[in-house]
Amino acid sequence: MTGQALYAVLGCGLFCLGFHALVVAAHPLRRLLAVNVMGSSVFLVLVAGAAPGDPLPQALVITGIVVAVAATALGLNLLLRLAVPAAADEPADGEGGS
């Protein structure tokens, strides 16, 4: 097995590990991290699975990383906003906004 194929196989394992954590973990922060692990694993498969030295998947991964950063930042801010209720919030009544 070449070194590059090994990375691709590792990526597959990481994807499943990340998915396992996503299903098992209860805390949203852990689940957000699990999704990030899955993301990195897909990027690994994308680059290591393609022909050696192919620049196209490398460029795709840069795009993917920026998307992942943006999504994580949004998720973390939602999480933070949920964890620290502001004074202006009314108590949760489950009625939903309208």
Partner: peptide, 14 residues
């Protein structure tokens, strides 16, 4: 939205 909307959005995001 209120806290319920935020929690639902987070699940939606994941």
């Amino acid at each position: 939205g209120g806290p319920a909307a935020l929690a639902a959005s987070l699940r939606y995001l994941l």
